[in-house]
Computed example of a mutant assay.
Amino acid sequence: MLKRTLSALIGAPLLLGLTYLGGPYIAFLVAVLTLLALWEFMKIGERMGMQTWYIQTTIVTVVWLINLFIGSREWLLSALVFWLLLVLGRLALTYPKTSLAEATFNLLAFLYTVVLLSHLYMLRQLPGGLELTFLTIFLVWATDTGAYLIGRGFGRHLLAPQVSPKKTVEGSLGGLVLSIVVALVFWRLVGETSWIKYLILAIIVGVSAQIGDLFESALKRSAGVKDSGNLIPGHGGILDRFDSLIFAIPLVYYGVTLIVR
């Protein structure tokens, strides 16, 4: 518990501080997180018996991040399509040495850890991005906290017992409710738009964050590991700490850019 608390006291201000500074600081944060998350994902794949493509995925990740940070967004889709064709081409040329499961895993490695997590930088770069990014982070933390506290105190009905035997329906609802409460408090303090928009974002985050948590749990169970890594004392790895945010951030980004605005 002491290690977990100390890690949170150091990690949370660091995350918020780099996010607040923006620019090259948030770029550095996202680059480090994506590369570490990709490495952890690959290690999980090895535990599952997969042949992991470290060199290829690292190269496409670096290309993706460079284009993201210099503002060449039109090249991001090209990089994504190129990676898809590369994966499919390798499957076609080397089958059965390369299996469909191996190709799919390595494709997913890039999509999950790099493409989704890159939206942290993209959200911060939007007009009003600082408020939106802070709001999303706080809502994810509120969802995790509410689910833990309510689930521990009142949980009776298991939510997904095959994936996470400790998560309950009551805890899930508690996380969603606390997310909504924090969003409305945030709206009262700094909001300049309708409270409905904050409510929508709270629901998006409250649901997606928990699905992201369950996905990572399913991934670890498939590999027979408890944590994705041991980089963060008391918390495990990057994926253990950011699994909820990885799912929530892209949905908030597109919710804001395509729906809310």
Rank of each mutant, 00 (worst) to 15 (best):
S164Y: 08
G45V: 14
G234S: 07
G129R: 13
T133Q: 08
L123Q: 07
L120P: 00
Q162V: 07
G175K: 04
L76R: 00
A209N: 02
F247K: 02
S179D: 02
L189E: 09
L231F: 12
K220N: 05
I150Q: 00
T145N: 03
L33S: 01
S208K: 01
L111H: 00
R221G: 12
L239I: 15
A12Y: 00
R188I: 03
Y20F: 15
G22R: 04
T98D: 06
L201E: 07
L111E: 00
G174H: 04
M122T: 00
V140T: 11
R241G: 00
I10G: 12
R241L: 08
S244Q: 07
L9H: 07
L33I: 10
V62D: 07
Q56I: 14
L2C: 05
F154M: 11
T52P: 15
R221P: 14
L91P: 05
G234E: 09
A27E: 14
A27M: 13
F186W: 13
K167G: 07
L88W: 04
T133Y: 04
R221C: 14
Y54R: 15
G229C: 12
Y20K: 05
V32A: 14
L111V: 10
V30Y: 04
L176M: 13
G151E: 08
A218T: 01
E192H: 08
E74V: 11
M1V: 13
V207N: 13
T94N: 10
I26T: 14
L251K: 02
L184V: 09
L86D: 10
A147F: 06
I246R: 06
E46D: 03
I44S: 11
I196P: 06
K3I: 02
V30A: 04
S78R: 01
L201Y: 00
G23P: 03
I66K: 01
G89V: 15
I44W: 13
K166L: 11
L159N: 00
R73E: 14
A79Y: 01
S194G: 13
Q125M: 10
W195S: 07
L159T: 00
F138A: 15
L2R: 12
T113I: 09
L201C: 05
E46V: 06
P233F: 05
L176Q: 05
G17Y: 12
L239T: 09
L9W: 03
P96A: 04
D213V: 05
L123H: 03
G237E: 04
I44G: 06
L76I: 05
V252M: 03
W195L: 05
S118Y: 01
S244G: 15
L120Y: 06
M48G: 11
T57D: 10
A27Y: 07
A37S: 15
F134Y: 10
V181N: 07
G224W: 03
L239M: 15
L132T: 02
P233R: 08
Q210W: 07
I211A: 11
L68Q: 13
L36G: 09
I26E: 00
V181S: 08
G129Q: 09
T19L: 09
V115H: 01
I246F: 12
L231I: 15
F105G: 09
W141F: 02
V256F: 11
M48H: 08
E192D: 08
W39V: 01
R152F: 05
P250L: 04
L85C: 10
L231N: 04
G191T: 06
S72M: 06
V30W: 02
L199I: 09
L29W: 12
S164K: 12
P161G: 06
I203P: 14
G89I: 14
L76P: 02
